[in-house]
């Protein structure tokens, strides 16, 4: 069992997954931010591999990706940085990228290098489940790489079952019909949706993403699910921060207590 799986098995805990765009705000501090998040005992970190055309992402993550690319971040560079990391100081890691990046790098090489870079799971939002099964599942198994598929309020029961069968880390529950970066509170229909998700029976934890930006939305999510992913709000905090260590500690504390 890898580091990520150990964390995910602790179902009693309200899992906090922080999203960070790799290479934002600088290339040099990606590792420092990861170490700092680990010190705050964040349960896992989703590293976004910056992409020129991030369809599913709202403005905040788009802009952070653009900045990261300007900084010179790339798939190759990210793997090189992570391979040099002190693995004891890294939090459990997953990576989020778009299929084009994986294809261009070479799919098998991508999965192998990700694994060597302490990444135990991938989220590829534009990889359809049937294509994964047909073309990639064997490769993921070969390198013991996990994967999480997304469900949304529009996802049919049949597809939810497929997503559960294929996801081996956690199920990614998209809170509402929107791109990432929502700032408001949860609507009644979102709450109803999360309640419905709670009733889905599965062995793997359910993590809620999109629109989780403060303690209120985090608490609402973990009331019905096993954890939540905070992305754009974390990026917005980094944007303004002059002292990452201090501000990351405050940010995590504010969400958790």
């Amino acid at each position: 069992m890898n580091k990520l799986q150990k964390v995910l098995r602790k179902r009693s805990k309200k899992l906090l997954n922080i999203y960070l765009t790799a290479g934002y705000p600088n290339i040099d501090n990606t590792l420092d931010i990861l170490y700092a998040l680990n010190e705050q005992e964040v349960d896992l970190v989703e590293l976004g591999i910056p992409f020129s055309d991030p369809l599913a992402d709202g403005l905040t993550i788009q802009q952070s990706s653009e900045m990261a690319l300007k900084n010179g971040m790339s798939v190759e560079r990210l793997f090189a940085i992570l391979k040099m990391a002190d693995s004891d100081r890294l939090p459990p890691l997953i990576a989020m990228g778009y299929l084009n990046q994986m294809i261009q790098f070479g799919e098998e090489q991508f999965i192998k290098d990700a694994k060597d870079s302490h990444i135990d799971g991938l989220i590829i939002p534009d990889l359809p489940m049937d294509i994964y099964q047909r073309d990639y599942q064997d490769l993921f198994r070969k390198y013991d790489m996990g994967i999480s598929f997304l469900i949304t309020p529009e996802t049919s029961n049949k597809r939810i079952q497929s997503a559960l069968e294929l996801s081996n880390n956690f199920l990614y529950v998209v809170s509402s019909s929107a791109t990432t970066g929502g700032k408001g509170g949860f609507s009644l229909s979102t709450m109803d949706y999360l309640k419905a998700v709670q009733r889905i029976e599965t062995e793997i934890p359910k993590l809620v993403g999109f629109g989780i930006h403060d303690k209120t939305t985090f608490e609402a999510a973990v009331k019905y699910c096993d954890g939540a992913i905070v992305g754009s709000a974390f990026i917005r905090m980094l944007q303004k921060s002059n002292d990452y260590h201090k501000d990351i500690a405050t940010f995590v504390e504010k969400i958790r207590t």
């Binding site: 599913a56 534009d126 359809p128 598929f149 997304l150 949304t152 529009e154």
Partner: peptide, 11 residues
Amino acid sequence: GAFVPEMLYAN
């Protein structure tokens, strides 16, 4: 093919 995020699947 249709390489779209789940958010677009139903549409």
